[in-house]
Design a protein around this nucleic acid. Structure first.
Lengths: 124, 124
DNA sequence: ACAACATATGTTTAAGTGTTCATATGTATA
DNA sequence: TATACATATGAACACTTAAACATATGTTGT
């Protein structure tokens, strides 16, 4: 790429072609493994559905059983249960059984934090 | 639902059917507007693609031009540009033009925070 | 064991979306 | 203005996925 020598342009070169390569290489070394970034995307994908977000938000402060959620959000029991399964497998919610009902709640503070951060961004 | 009177079961009733309704109603009042939760889901949907996450992560500490990103992540220029357009419209990245190149960077701290929170959850 | 209720799961279908290829727009230099 | 380089955009295709319906599993009380 560099035509000829041009030592007097060295600093400028650093900022353009050659410096770019260095930066790209540096960042390449800093990137987490593909697998981790894939998992990260999968996690956000779970948050990226309005039904699931509604379900998660409904549990922001309380635990709720499947039927509660279905009534609250006007959804079919099947739909809620399917979504809860996805939320469960991503460790976004935990649950406990009490008689015939199963009560779901947010799994930990990360979940609350992620939702809150997203909210702040959206409400700007 | 309540068969007969059974005043002595009042507190228990509160914990079951009638109490449930109250809780559901309370939460119903606390839920943000559907529109906001829809936007929130749309936001997370943008994070929910491994290519976009890789792109975002590559800009975690540095600004990068389209070509840098394409080389770094071994993606086509077209693909990167398409994804950057989505990231732009969600206000997750900002950009500046410098000659022929366009340099992109994360838009604000919310973006970094959301990614970090997600990372913590994934790395558990 | 049986009936009634609560939840979970399997399957199908329609809608949404990321990538590729081709092409257009924008910018700098000769 | 003509050429080369950098980025953006349009369109088609393959793939994913949420919702609906039917059905299965699990739990309680009779």
């Amino acid at each position: 790429m560099a035509t000829g020598r041009g030592d007097e342009l060295k600093s400028i070169q650093d900022e353009t072609s050659k410096g770019r390569e260095d930066i790209v290489e540096k960042i390449f070394g800093q990137q987490p493994d593909d697998e981790i970034l894939y998992d990260l995307a999968e996690l956000f994908k779970v948050f990226g559905d309005s039904t699931r977000i509604k379900i998660l938000y409904s549990m922001f402060e309380n635990e709720l059983c499947v039927n509660d959620i279905a009534k609250l959000l006007n959804l079919s029991q099947s739909s809620v249960s399917h979504q809860l399964r996805i939320l469960k497998s991503s460790k976004l919610v935990k649950f406990r059984r009490d008689g015939k009902s199963v009560y779901y709640s947010l799994d930990d503070e990360h979940v609350r934090a992620i939702i809150s951060m997203g909210m702040e961004h959206v409400e700007e």
